[in-house]
Computed example of a mutant assay.
Amino acid sequence: MRRMIWFIIVSLNGILGTAMLFMWVKCRPFAKIWDESLEGGWCIEPAKVITLYQWSAGYSGAMDIVLALCPWVLLWNLSMLKREKVGVAICMSMGVV
């Protein structure tokens, strides 16, 4: 469980950091982002950047669901009343909302 959580942390930071970085490096010179009439320079295809943004948002959402399920796995083997386990797990999983 610990390795999985660390993998999620590292991979999310890498993917979302890359998507954030592409906001600033998708065009050279930088001003070409909002002024396409500038001579010279280049821009990455907008479709590729949008695909990266969509993929990173989907991965982030999937990892939110995985992290919301982690309390259920951790709490289920504790010696508590089943009613208490469910209540605590629901409260800990509210981050998915």
Rank of each mutant, 00 (worst) to 15 (best):
M1Q: 10
M1D: 10
R2C: 06
R3T: 10
R3S: 12
M4N: 06
I5T: 11
W6S: 11
I8G: 01
I8T: 08
I9E: 00
I9S: 08
V10W: 11
S11T: 14
N13R: 04
I15F: 07
I15A: 12
I15T: 10
I15V: 15
G17V: 09
G17R: 10
G17F: 10
G17Q: 10
L21D: 06
F22P: 00
F22S: 10
M23L: 13
W24A: 11
V25H: 04
K26P: 01
A31F: 03
I33N: 03
I33S: 04
W34I: 01
D35Q: 06
D35A: 05
E36L: 11
S37E: 04
L38P: 04
E39N: 08
E39H: 06
E39M: 04
G40T: 03
G40H: 03
G41C: 05
W42G: 02
C43H: 05
I44M: 11
I44E: 06
E45I: 05
P46I: 07
A47Q: 13
V49P: 01
V49F: 04
I50W: 08
T51N: 11
T51I: 10
T51D: 05
Y53I: 05
Y53D: 01
Q54G: 05
W55L: 15
S56G: 09
S56E: 04
S56V: 09
S56P: 01
G58E: 01
Y59F: 14
S60D: 03
S60Q: 09
G61V: 02
G61F: 09
G61A: 13
M63H: 03
D64T: 14
I65M: 08
I65D: 03
V66W: 06
L67M: 15
L67R: 03
A68S: 14
A68F: 07
L69D: 00
L69M: 15
C70H: 10
C70V: 15
C70F: 15
P71S: 04
L74N: 08
L75T: 05
L75S: 02
W76E: 05
N77W: 01
N77L: 02
N77H: 12
N77V: 07
M80V: 03
M80R: 03
L81V: 04
R83E: 07
E84D: 13
K85I: 07
G87Y: 05
V88M: 14
A89W: 09
A89C: 12
I90L: 15
I90G: 05
I90C: 13
I90M: 14
C91V: 11
M92T: 10
S93E: 06
S93A: 13
M94V: 14
G95A: 04
V96Y: 12
V96E: 07
